[in-house]
Design a protein around this nucleic acid. Structure first.
Length: 400
DNA sequence: ACTAGACGACGGG
DNA sequence: CCCGTCTTCTAGT
């Protein structure tokens, strides 16, 4: 499950293994899709012999800062994973990935790096980048400062390393007319590293419907959202992306296996409700309708036609889709955008967000402590399920 | 056995 | 700016 926390986990492990070490050998398996802009052989040649100065991450990308200006960069895509020789592969959520112990090189390995002590040449460990679905990417960045060129330079702010203030986030969000979910998933938008499960978790915690227009968010809503973006990110990273340790009130453990239309979910209040699955921004979205309401005037575009694209079209069958509301009359009637979208763009953006006052300056912490959550839905600011381990948690204290 | 769905991102309409 | 596509494995039917 490679979203920010899973990638951060992979980064940490690779850093432990490789920082200060020499890349003694690279076994690169040919793959003209995963290797992008470089051949497997070219990648191996570029890495071999170099010393790893640092292992960094931005969003869902992680990369090796080497002793030269070539920077190997990895992206897990949907199914990528990293495995250290002798260790079981990561199991983010069970049951999953029946990791065969110790077959090496592992199945679907695209690159296997052998690290060695820079002085003695003694081998210290092997690491493999694997990807069954081949949607992951391995590239080389050729630049003095890798962060200054694509794909890193175009990314939004990383919510773990560099969370923007409420004001900056609000200003960015209200400029976007897409559903809030689509905006948060946009890696080159305001933030990066957030993927499908994170955004659903965040929006549920923040009590916002994924279809809520980003431009219509109030400052209060952005403040709550900001809090939960930080919260979900920091907590997931604090437990090293191990879903077994995620807080029990999270949607996470309930959302998978969408085989059925709905699944049961227990609210923190103890009430039982259903998880609804809707498609927003082309992705399956888990929604708790009891707490995630759309703002007035916005209707869910639940076109029954959004089934499966191919020839699956089930003819009519409209008889049993009364569950939706076919009223898509008017979302907004005041926009009158028919005229032009070019010129008066700016004024129109402001007009769609009558609540946001740029002059207001808020204190992050003060607002976080005054979250507009209902009493029965209050979330523990002190997130319980994290074990007493206090090793890699420097940032936890002043989080949120 | 068969097939919808999957933790992502990009290109096109 | 939404949708299809790429690709292949898994889990549910």
């Amino acid at each position: 499950m490679p979203e920010l926390p899973e990638v951060e986990r992979a980064r940490r492990r690779l850093e432990q293994l490789a920082k200060g070490k020499r890349i003694k050998k690279v076994l690169a398996n040919e793959d003209t899709i995963v290797y992008s802009g470089v051949t497997h052989a070219g990648f191996a040649t570029a890495c071999e012999g170099k010393i790893v100065k640092a292992v960094k991450r931005k969003g869902k990308n992680f990369y090796l800062v080497l002793s030269e200006k070539t920077t190997p960069i990895f992206h897990f895509g949907m199914s990528g994973t990293a495995i250290v020789k002798g260790e079981a592969g990561p199991i983010y959520r069970a049951p999953r990935a029946k990791t065969e112990p110790c077959i090496w090189p592992p199945k679907y390995a695209k690159a296997v790096l052998t690290f060695a002590d820079a002085e003695t040449g003694e081998e210290v460990g092997d690491w493999a980048f694997c990807d069954a679905r081949r949607l992951g990417r391995i590239k080389l960045i050729e630049a003095e400062v890798p962060e200054e060129v694509p794909p890193l330079s175009t990314l939004g702010a990383d919510p773990f390393l560099d969370m923007p203030s409420v004001e900056v986030l609000a200003a960015a969000l209200i400029k976007r007319h897409a559903p809030i979910k689509a905006v948060l998933l946009d890696q080159n938008g305001p933030l990066c590293g957030i993927g499908n499960w994170m955004v659903d978790e965040i929006l549920y915690q923040a009590r916002l419907h994924p279809s809520h227009p980003s431009s219509a968010l109030t400052l209060e809503e952005v403040t709550t959202l900001h809090h939960h973006i930080r919260d979900v990110t920091v907590v997931a990273c604090a437990v090293n992306a191990d879903a077994a340790q995620f807080p029990s009130h999270w949607l996470f453990s309930f959302r998978w296996g969408k085989g059925k239309k709905e699944k049961d979910f227990i609210l923190p209040s103890g009430e039982k409700t259903a998880i609804k699955f809707v498609t927003v921004g082309g992705r399956t979205s888990a929604v708790i309708e009891a707490v995630q309401k759309l703002p007035k005037g916005v209707v869910q575009k639940t076109k029954a036609a959004v089934k499966k694209g191919k020839g699956k079209r089930k003819a009519k069958e409209e008889s049993e889709e009364e569950g939706e509301e076919e009223d898509e009359e008017e979302n907004e009637e005041k926009n009158g955008d028919e005229s032009e979208r070019g010129e008066e763009k700016v004024t129109r953006e402001k007009a769609t967000s009558p609540y946001f006052d740029e002059r207001v300056k808020l204190d992050d912490r003060a607002m976080a402590e005054a979250l507009p959550l209902s009493p029965s839905f209050k979330l523990p600011l002190d997130l319980s399920p994290t074990k007493p381990r206090a090793s890699t948690r420097a940032s936890r204290s002043r989080a949120v």
